[in-house]
Amino acid sequence: MKNNLNLYEVFIQPKPGLPHQHVGSVHASDSEMALQNARDVYTRREEGRNIWVVPSVHIAANSPEEDGYFFDPANDKIYRAPMFYNTGNIKM
């Protein structure tokens, strides 16, 4: 696309108090227009109360090649996931 549009990632908070969740991305000339576009594309059916947009270039992500040393070390540390404790009759 030959134009002056940038890509923005869109995060929507479904309800006050809940965390913002990534829902997708929009093209826009600047952050104000990105908010407008996000509103039109992602909240038409009342999906959210608050919207964040972040220029996609500002998202830092790990690369798939790093998967090994990034995530594997957690494999054998099952004690970090306390799923084997018996929670008995504790009511949540």
């Binding site: 134009n3 826009a28 039109d40």
Partner: peptide, 8 residues
């Protein structure tokens, strides 16, 4: 002109 504006 592009998808987002089409929807708007």
């Amino acid at each position: 002109p592009y998808l987002e504006e089409d929807i708007a």
